[in-house]
Design a protein around this nucleic acid. Structure first.
Lengths: 354, 354
DNA sequence: ATCGTTCTCGTGATCGTTCACGGGCAAATT
DNA sequence: AATTTGCCCGTGAACGATCACGAGAACGAT
């Protein structure tokens, strides 16, 4: 009625549950019941309360609510680099599920640094998030263990935990198996000298793909040469440097397996800088199938990962854990799919017979 | 000392400020003073309190703190689509500044939908964020006005507000001027029939670039033909469709100005599908200079926007507004920079004389 | 010896909500 | 008629911190 708009007033006190109670002629608790649907309340008073809520434009103070309920309707999402298209898609999948269920998402970048990762995890704990999705953690086993032992709902992505544990979920991709399949695919194209521009050792995806690569090489009867494997940060520049070193030291190489599509772009660049055509002289296979993979030059042959699904599944698991922290979940492993485009082709003939 | 780990205990009560007070032999308030450095306290007791804090591993409960101080150390960041590399970079710039200052960032996706935008803004208000960075809002003028009138610290990106206002900041790019310059650049390459695959009308960037396009065309003495302008959502598919329609209806076109690099990729595809070479037959210029622009086929000529700087500047403004909500800030406008690569070249000769 | 300052610290109230408990009332039961 | 049952609803006390206020101690000045 007389809600005079005191625009220059020093402090516009927000409307609280007590104001609603006063207006509806009931107690605070009754208002709480009407809002949260917990406890008994008659239909008539509930309607009267909700009318008062509407009239006053009341919105529950989630801070006060959180203090009592110990839940913030907020979850933490930690990624190494949001500018990496892979993680951007994962995040998008996570957002969708979280928002649909009424949760907000605190997103944190670690810049690939374990120390920064610990810092943001502490920040998230301080913010009292209800749970955390931790993507591609670069933490050491013992550090990760200490995080897990905090006993709060946690889902790790691209990092399978040592053992199943209450309150802990995991979503990962079949890194090893996918890598093995790619090796066989290249073998089918006539390649023998297949090198790996892998990721950093701290990344479990990197270790998994390296393992599958080694397995595949063994299966096609190719000696596993450690000098055909280099480590690379997950970006274009590092990929270019890694591939350049590889190609100059080992001209016999006809195919490059890159840790992800960014690294693959670097590999293509290194080839062109060395006067080699892709895929005529050297084949390149990437990982992730980021949005731009089809539009690159040449269009990238790559292992497609279900990026938004990874994020959505992880978030779904986390919400289940928040509802029941004693839940013991099976780890989820998703498959990649080889998308054959133009960056990988038949091995050059003069190498073929080697 | 005797911190027995009660792993199976039903509830591990967190250590509170009262526990610290008890241990240090002081009152709660004194502990508060030691932690926050507010109010007088002797060096010796402060040290004693901090020792107790360390021993107990005490971490202030930010929920309880927020209830009293009305600050959450959380800010909201709203973007149309985090999978768009432009916004991913902007977000990264924002994170860096926010985290450095101890703030968490609630990231929200709107999927380009104004309704969803209102929903997430309400969610952020419910979460009692200290301020909001709103990127490329698709809200109508009146909707945006109602958001601004909530009188909470707000910084809009890519959307200059009607008038300067206390508690309101803005960061944008010189859309119109940049577009005008691109038209002149293409004119210098001999192009006359320059078309625009612009963005959606709800986007102010889109309107600004269209304005600069029209201005530039007028300046080079070219009649501004409305049929040379189409609207496109900011993704590859929409860009392809828009350009295809344009090229089939107006074969005289020799240059396409795309709303952003995603749309530009679509334009290139449409050209190739129509049997036209880029840049020999048709030149394409994009916007943003996303990470992949140099690696596309052909490497994209585009207007580079200072993406992380935009995010960082916006966040810096917001933090200033949070410190002093009565601040009246000058809008910030940043310049783009034309990066000439290979997707734009001289106009074809037979069109040149037209 | 008394007073006033300055420095240090503690007490109670407060933020806005939910939880545990108990009281009242009507209908149904003995 | 007295008692039980089940449904509503309200009262006080958390939750964990900070703020306003005031009290006590130490100190020098008068």
């Amino acid at each position: 009625m007389n809600d005079h708009e005191n625009d220059n007033g020093p402090r516009i006190r927000a409307v609280t549950i007590a104001d609603v109670a006063l207006r509806a002629g009931v107690s605070r608790q009754t208002v709480s019941r009407a809002i949260n649907g917990r406890g008994e309340i008659s239909a008539t008073t509930r309607e009267r309360v909700l009318a008062a809520v509407r009239e006053l434009g009341y919105r529950p103070n989630s801070i006060a609510r959180g203090l009592k309920t110990r839940r913030t309707l907020t979850i933490g999402l930690v990624v190494p680099d949001i500018a990496n298209p892979f993680f951007a898609e994962v995040a998008r999948g996570g957002f969708e599920v979280a928002h649909r269920e009424g949760y907000g998402v605190l997103l944190c970048n670690t810049d690939e640094a374990p120390a920064q990762e610990m810092v943001v995890l502490q920040m998230l704990a301080d913010h009292r998030v209800d749970g955390v999705v931790l993507c591609s953690s670069r933490l050491s086993e013992s550090q990760l263990q200490s995080v897990i032992e905090r006993r709060r709902p946690l889902v790790v992505v691209n990092r399978t935990p040592q053992r199943r544990l209450a309150g802990l979920g995991s979503v990962s991709v079949a890194d090893s198996e996918d890598a093995r399949r790619v090796v066989h695919y290249l073998h089918g194209l006539g390649h023998r000298a297949i090198a790996l521009v892998g990721g950093v050792g701290a990344s479990q995806s990197s270790r998994g793909r390296r393992e599958g690569y080694a397995l595949g090489m063994a299966q096609i009867g190719q000696p596993v040469a450690p000098e055909w494997v280099v480590e690379s940060l997950p970006n274009v520049d590092a990929g270019r440097r890694g591939a350049a070193a590889l190609l100059s030291a080992h001209p016999e190489i006809t195919a490059l397996l890159a840790f992800n599509d960014l690294v693959a772009v670097g590999c293509v660049q290194a080839c062109q800088a060395a006067g080699l055509q892709v895929p005529e002289d050297v084949s390149v296979v990437g990982w992730d199938d980021i949005l731009f993979a089809p539009y690159l030059s040449p269009p990238l042959t790559t292992v497609r990962l279900p990026k938004t699904e990874i994020g959505a599944r992880a978030m779904t698991l986390l919400l289940a854990l928040i509802r029941d922290p004693e839940l013991v979940l099976d780890p989820i492993e998703l498959d990649g799919e080889l998308i054959a485009r133009k960056s990988a082709g038949p091995a050059p003939a003069h190498h073929h017979s080697a």
